[in-house]
Computed example of a mutant assay.
Amino acid sequence: GASIIITNGGSISGVDTGVRFGIAGSLAHSANAEFSFGGGSIAGSTASLDARGLNQMLGHYAFGSTTFSGPQLFDQQNVIFVGGVGSSGDGSSTSSLLAINLADANTQNNAIFVLVNEGSPIDAAGGFSLSDGQTLASFGNGRSFSLGGIPVNITGNNVQHDQVVSDPGGGAATLTNSGSGGVVTVANGNSLLDFNISGGSDAGINATLINGLTIQGVTLSNVDTGLFLGSVTGTVSVHDLNVQNASQTGIELVASSA
C-alpha cells in the first residue's frame, strides 16, 4: 500500500467523520497504507475514527499523541482460532480451537482464520479452501489479533482498543496436506499472513481464476510448486514470501494479468 505521512498532525474539526478507513460492512474496500498522523486533534460529530470496513491485516495507521473527540467506530471482528482435526472447541479463543476441517467449511466472507501452533503441523487433509474475502493467518512475526474495538493496526495513545490476543507461545503455525491437491486454495480478495506451509503433493498456494490476493510473511517448503498463479487478475501483493525445497517450481505464472 501507499505511504502517507502527515508530519505535524494538526486539527480536524467541524466534520461528520474525522478519519475513515473503509466502508462499513465491506472489507473489499479496506484501506491498505502506511499512515501516520503526527499529533494534534481529530473531532467528528458521527465519529472521530471510523474503522468499519478496515481489515486489521492491511496497513498500519499511527496517531501517536493525537486526541479524539467523538465516537471511535469499528466492526466486530470474526476471528476464529483453528487447530488440528482433533480440536473440539468453537474457535473463540486460543484455548478453544476449532478443528481445521470445520474451519474449511466456513464460507463467511469476513472470517479471519488464525492457525495456532500447538507443536505439530496442522493437517488440512485434502487442502484448505478459502472463500471470497477471507483471511488465513497465524502468530508469526509477532502478529496479534483484535477481537473487538478499533483494530490493532491503528495505534495511538488515545485509540480505544478492546481485547487483543497475542501469541500463546508457539509462533507461526505450519499447515500441511497429507491428501491430494494444493495445501491452500485461495479465492477473490484473500489474505495469507505469517504462517508456514510445508508438505503437499501439489502447490503450496493455488491461486486460479481469482481477482486480488495479499501474501505476507509466508514460508513454503516441501511442496511441488510454491505459489501457482493461474489466470489471476487484479492486484497481487506479495511481501516476504520464502519458498524452500519445492520439487518443481518456486512461483508459476500462467496466463495471469495481475
Results as ranks from 00 to 15, higher is better:
I4W: 11
I5F: 15
T7F: 12
N8C: 11
G9F: 11
G10W: 06
G10Y: 09
V19D: 02
V19F: 12
V19R: 00
G22L: 02
I23G: 02
A24R: 07
A24Y: 03
A28F: 13
A28K: 13
N32I: 03
N32W: 01
A33M: 06
E34F: 11
G38V: 03
G38F: 09
G39I: 07
G39Q: 08
G40Q: 08
A43L: 10
A43Y: 10
G44C: 05
G44F: 08
S45L: 09
T46P: 14
L49G: 09
D50T: 13
L54N: 05
N55W: 08
N55Y: 09
M57E: 04
M57C: 04
L58I: 00
H60L: 07
Y61F: 05
A62E: 03
F63R: 04
S65M: 02
F68T: 02
S69F: 00
G70H: 01
G70E: 00
Q72M: 07
Q76Y: 09
N78T: 07
N78V: 01
G84K: 00
G86A: 08
G86K: 10
S87D: 14
S88Q: 14
D90T: 09
S95D: 12
L97A: 05
N101R: 04
N101Q: 14
D104T: 01
A105S: 12
N109T: 15
L115C: 05
V116D: 05
S120E: 14
D123F: 05
A124N: 06
D132L: 14
A137Y: 00
N141A: 14
F145Q: 13
L147Q: 13
L147V: 02
G148A: 11
N153W: 05
H161G: 12
Q163P: 02
V165S: 12
D167M: 11
D167V: 07
D167I: 06
G169Y: 07
A172K: 10
A173Q: 01
L175I: 10
L175N: 05
T176C: 00
N177F: 05
G179E: 02
S180E: 13
G182I: 01
V183P: 05
V184P: 06
T185A: 10
A187C: 04
N188A: 05
N190Y: 09
L192Q: 04
L192V: 04
I197W: 04
S198R: 12
G199N: 08
D202G: 01
D202K: 04
A203S: 15
A203G: 14
G204I: 00
A207P: 03
A207G: 13
A207K: 03
A207Y: 08
A207H: 03
L209H: 13
L209N: 15
I210T: 15
N211E: 08
N211M: 13
L213Q: 12
L213M: 15
G217P: 03
N222A: 14
V223C: 15
L227M: 15
L227F: 15
S231W: 11
T233Y: 05
T233L: 11
T235H: 04
T235W: 06
V236H: 13
S237G: 06
S237E: 14
H239N: 15
S247T: 15
I251P: 09
L253V: 12
S256P: 04
S257I: 03
S257Q: 10
S257M: 01
